[in-house]
């Protein structure tokens, strides 16, 4: 049994899942638009939460949030479920598929056999859409892959009940009912305001632009604090969070720039075109950071100097992002 689900490849899992589900339910939507309305852009450096034993550095809002916010802002009714046991989780998934409903699921990539081996780490925030079942295999539309994939039921069960940070607990979600009318401009504005708020206004030093500054300060101290080997591991981890499968490049800054460009047309607001260009420029800065950081990791530029240089690059990202989101906020007031 397979649902006729138009699969499109995108850069990021959750915004791709959201865009593909919206598209299936009759609302044509780009990934960038889903990401922007869902307020996906973010930054946080949380040294006391560990991913693969290294500090959590994230360029996006937490798993589940993009889908939840994008659908809420568009007035779409969705159902979300978590489960106490793998059996009940699997029964409910099968029941929904039988009823012809594509189902979004949060999974841990370590257990997904269709992932490139080099990418199979314990990361539990990966989203995909289950679109059918044949024998003991599930059919899956995973937006970061070119084609739909198959996954043995036993593996998907482990992936849905992955443990550790961001444990999905069998979490699934699906669209229950679409509204008759959408207020797209309002949804876009609300998504933009949300991102400006989390990047600028949350009074915690770990989050948003302040989080970037915190990372810059801490990163400069890594060589002293951790020694060379550990500080290089910390640095490599930041690059992976920023660039690894799924961010579309530069820790989602390019996807967001694409969203601002699209939003400029919908809102008929030319200021957003310029802000989109600035967002691209910030993304390019982040790419410079990743490139230099990777050279440091490879031992081509070690020593305190390169860490200071990297910290300076991050500070520059923070300065530009602060100005960008301030201006973005005021661009909405007409």
């Amino acid at each position: 049994m397979k649902i006729n689900f138009p699969h499109r490849q995108f850069a990021h899992c959750e915004s791709g899942v959201t865009a593909n589900l919206l598209n299936y339910h009759g609302f044509p939507c780009s990934e960038a638009m889903a990401f922007g309305i869902g307020g996906g852009l973010f930054f946080a450096y949380v040294p006391f939460v560990k991913i693969n034993f290294l500090p959590l550095t994230t360029y996006r809002i937490g798993p589940g949030s993009i889908f939840a916010k994008a659908t809420r802002r568009l007035g779409i009714k969705v159902i979300k479920k978590k489960f106490g046991s793998p059996e009940s989780a699997e029964n409910e998934l099968d029941r929904l598929l039988e009823a012809g409903r594509p189902v979004g699921a949060q999974t841990g990539v370590f257990w997904l056999p269709f992932f490139p081996p080099a990418y199979r780490f314990h990361f539990n925030g990966h989203n995909l859409v289950v679109i059918g079942k044949e024998g003991s295999d599930y059919l899956i539309s995973d937006p970061i892959f070119e084609e739909t994939v198959r996954c043995p039921a036993a593996d998907l069960r482990k992936a849905r009940f992955a443990k550790g940070a961001l444990a999905p607990k069998g979490r699934i979600y699906y669209i229950e009912k679409m509204p008759v009318h959408f207020n797209l401009p309002k949804a876009i504005e609300s998504g933009i305001r949300d991102v400006c708020r989390v990047m600028l206004k949350v009074p915690l030093p770990l989050l948003g632009v302040r989080g970037i500054r915190l990372l810059a300060r801490q990163l400069a101290k890594w060589p002293d604090r951790f020694g060379e080997k550990q500080s290089l591991l910390h640095l490599g981890h930041v690059i992976r969070m920023q660039e690894e499968i799924g961010t579309g490049g530069a820790g989602f800054r390019f996807i967001y720039a694409a969203f601002l460009q699209e939003a400029a047309g919908v809102l008929e607001n030319d200021r957003l075109i310029d802000l989109s260009r600035r967002c691209t420029a910030v993304g390019d800065l982040w790419r410079d950071f990743a490139l230099l950081a990777s050279r440091v990791c490879k031992g081509r530029a070690v020593g305190q100097d390169s860490f200071d240089h990297l910290a300076a690059l991050l500070s520059s990202c923070a300065v530009h992002e602060e100005a960008l989101f301030e201006d973005l906020r005021s661009a909405l007031v007409r």
Binding site: L232, A257, Q261, S294
Partner: peptide, 22 residues
């Protein structure tokens, strides 16, 4: 100046970081 989705087989910076983790 329009945004497009472009396919990529990878980036050296990422390969270095991934390899380092392994």
């Amino acid at each position: 100046g329009r945004y497009i989705l472009e396919s990529s087989v990878g980036w050296e910076a990422k390969n270095i970081a991934l390899r380092q983790a392994w």
